[in-house]
Computed example of a mutant assay.
Amino acid sequence: MIVRILGEGQVRLDDSHFAELNKLDDELLAETESGDEEGFRRTLGALLDAVRRLGAPLADDALEPSDLILPAPDASLAEVRTMLGEDGLIPD
Rank of each mutant, 00 (worst) to 15 (best):
D26W: 01
L48N: 09
E27K: 06
F18H: 09
P73V: 00
D61P: 00
R12W: 14
E31R: 09
A19S: 15
D67W: 02
K23M: 15
T43S: 05
V3A: 08
E33Q: 14
V3G: 06
E64C: 09
A78F: 00
P91Y: 14
L54Y: 10
R53C: 01
E64K: 08
D25L: 04
P65E: 15
D92N: 11
L68G: 05
H17Q: 15
L29S: 01
L28V: 04
P71A: 06
A72S: 12
A62F: 06
D92M: 06
H17A: 15
I2Q: 04
E33N: 11
P65S: 12
I5M: 09
G88R: 01
F18A: 06
H17C: 15
L70T: 08
G7E: 09
L54H: 12
I90R: 03
L68H: 08
H17D: 14
R53E: 15
T43M: 05
L28G: 02
E33V: 04
S34K: 03
G39D: 03
L84Q: 05
R4E: 15
N22V: 09
V3Y: 10
G9E: 14
T82L: 12
S34H: 00
G88F: 02
L68W: 11
M1Y: 05
A75D: 04
A19R: 15
D87F: 10
T32W: 04
P91E: 13
G88W: 01
D49H: 04
M83G: 03
D67H: 09
A56F: 08
M1W: 01
D36I: 02
A59I: 01
A19T: 15
D15T: 13
E86F: 08
P71H: 03
E64T: 08
V51E: 08
G7P: 06
M1R: 07
I5R: 03
G88Y: 04
A62C: 09
P91N: 13
A50M: 11
D26H: 09
G35Q: 08
G55Q: 07
E64S: 13
S76L: 01
I2E: 02
L6C: 06
L6G: 02
E86H: 07
L29R: 08
P65I: 09
D67V: 03
N22S: 12
L47I: 09
I2D: 03
